[in-house]
Design a protein around this nucleic acid. Structure first.
Lengths: 191, 191
DNA sequence: CATTATATCTAACAATCGTTAGAATGTCAA
DNA sequence: TTGACATTCTAACGATTGTTAGATATAATG
């Protein structure tokens, strides 16, 4: 991996744990193994690192959304289902290491940054709501059922995926409780 | 209000918006209208301010819990009900300005402070779960129903009460959606 | 080899951080 | 009024922050 990418990866890893301000350029450089001034060859300033991370994140998620909304995704061998949510929404979004770090970063920074607050609302509440409700609509489930599911997943996200580092234990707890909720609410879980 | 209390109030107000580290002693002093060294007459150091806030919070919440678990609370004119949740759990905890600020502070700091992470888990997930489930048990509702309610309230808490300053608009949105969920799920709302 | 462009380094800057010593007030009892 | 104590001030400290100018090294090109 080149230096620029290593800076981004290290910065995200540290930002997602401590927030933007508490992590210094020197902290990042120490972890990457470079001198401070090298950062300023690749980035305009510290803020530029943060901006670059958000650009990458939104590119990543936009492409994910395009897949979700493409006719292919819905006319597949398996129709939209809970298995589909499992594969795309859970594994490739909520549980994805990059996306998870970005969400934790947004969770911290939204509290004092109006711009990030909008991104936070969008990517943690609005888009997940849209996705899950459209799945439930296709499954001909009631709106009330969809909202209940959405609320339960959102609660689990905050309980397990957005408190500190994402460990295998937390991932498992999230998946287990999500699956068990679905099983007891809908009586089935098709993979 | 004496200087010590003014320092605590101002500090909490600023900590809950920006986090602990980004707020400097000078920021707090500027807002209170005192010089930096005065803080060190009332507190051992900056950490001591944070500790004092948590002591006050846990005293506050412990006394609240005592009321909730006392026989009086349950043998009142109105039996434990959604109205009871509204009065005690919503107004005096989730929507209370002091508690809300403390929760936002915990939300920020839990990400890089193991001690606060435990408090965060306790006061935002475990205790609310215990309270709501005990109410639902008394109401002879199914465990599944209680969990659904808990998840919905938790989701609303994060959506409206823990993103940025708590405004009247957010308070209203929270109450409205909570009441409408209860109304459509249980068909009644007794004040 | 000489030249140019790319990448990283050394070394410092002004600003801000938490904290402290010690002087200056204010308050109240003797 | 004097003395004791409580409270706030002035003024600085060493450390750390984001950032920059300029030297140095590496790689590619002629």
């Amino acid at each position: 991996m080149n230096t620029k990418d290593r800076i981004l990866e290290t910065a995200l890893s540290m930002f997602s744990e401590h927030g933007y301000d508490p992590v210094s350029i020197r902290d990042i450089c120490g972890a990457v193994g470079i001198k401070e001034s090298t950062v300023y060859y690749h980035f305009k300033n510290k803020q530029d690192i943060l901006d670059s991370l958000f650009i990458r994140f939104e590119e990543h998620v936009d492409s994910l959304l395009k897949v979700l909304h493409s006719p292919d995704a819905w006319n597949h061998s398996q129709s939209p289902s809970f298995g589909w949510i499992d594969t795309y929404f859970f594994d490739q979004y909520l549980l994805d290491p990059f996306c998870n770090r970005m969400m934790r970063l947004m969770l911290i920074e939204q509290l004092h940054n109006k711009e990030i607050q909008q991104k936070y609302s969008r990517w943690l509440f609005e888009e997940p709501y849209r996705i899950e409700m459209s799945v439930f609509e296709t499954l001909s489930q009631s709106e009330q059922t969809g909202k209940g599911f959405y609320a339960y997943i959102t609660m689990l996200v905050f309980k397990y995926l957005l408190n500190g580092k994402l460990t295998a234990r937390k991932k498992n707890a999230f998946c287990e409780e999500a699956h068990s909720y679905i099983a007891s609410s809908f009586g089935f879980w098709e993979g």
